[in-house]
Nucleic acid binder design. Structure first.
Lengths: 139, 139
DNA sequence: CTAATAACAGTAATCATTACTGATTTTAGA
DNA sequence: TCTAAAATCAGTAATGATTACTGTTATTAG
């Protein structure tokens, strides 16, 4: 009845997002899916990414920096964005849902949720930074 | 020496952002400034918004929804976005900076900051919602 | 099996933003 | 104050991400 046709294309996109933790952009998803479905269209990728987002099967990340990213991990978790290389990583941390209560305290509207992005230097860039420091100081 | 020339255009843009709490988009800033400087170019608005952001004189908000918004209030505060009408509002709430420590706990990179956006229904839309409910239930 | 319809590939259009150009302002220093 | 170097400008073209359109194909309820 609820006529939602599940195409091969949508299945592949969902499966790919479930298999990676790299938070790819629409363009990266496109490149990746083309390895399996060479003649898939970029429009199809966008349409399915948006539809999967609407149904809650995947998550869209609008963390600034030009284009959106997508995440197949729908369980509540937080994201870190490296300001040097742009990598998006999952963070292993406890829920900070209670910040919604802080926000609601003096607010006459209704707080339904929040999105927090953390910024800084990722482990890999941090390592590189330290290596360069060592080579400069000569130690 | 530090040759940063402060043009009339930049001054007006900064002043306008300081005078409003409406978190306008680049396009809205453009429309507003044109009332004072009719032949200003949209490119000039973007260039100055970006430069003012770089120097920390204003803040750029990337809260999803297509285009960025700008805020002349540089003191630390939080933002709420109404999922119905899209309005962006300032929230009167205490700092939740300590969430950065939560994030850093099991992370081997360096957390330098975070950005939190709150979502829900704004006071105005909430009021409208309630009014409609009343007219439907007949009370 | 088959008709209704959701989804498709391909392409054109849109929207926000950035880059380029030659002309104009601003400002540091004579 | 005058001047020249450099930042900025207006106007316009280009870019990049995303969405909309079109005629065709694939999926699924009955």
């Amino acid at each position: 009845m609820a006529g939602r046709k599940y195409s091969k294309q949508r299945a592949f996109i969902k499966q790919y997002l479930a298999s990676t933790s790299s938070h790819p952009t629409a363009d990266t998803v496109y490149d990746e899916i083309r390895k399996r479905i060479p003649n898939i269209s970029l429009g199809t990728v966008y349409r399915n990414l948006n539809q999967l987002t609407e149904t809650g099967e995947i998550i869209k990340l609008s963390c600034g920096g030009g284009c959106d990213r997508f995440d197949g991990n729908t369980s509540p978790h937080y994201h870190f964005i490296c300001t040097l290389c742009g990598t998006v990583m999952d963070l292993d941390m406890d829920s900070i849902d209670f910040v919604n209560k802080c926000a609601a305290k003096h607010f006459t509207g209704r707080i339904e949720g929040s999105q927090t992005y953390f910024y800084g230097t990722c482990p890999s860039c941090l390592f590189q930074e330290e290596a360069e420091l060592v080579s400069k100081t000569g130690l």
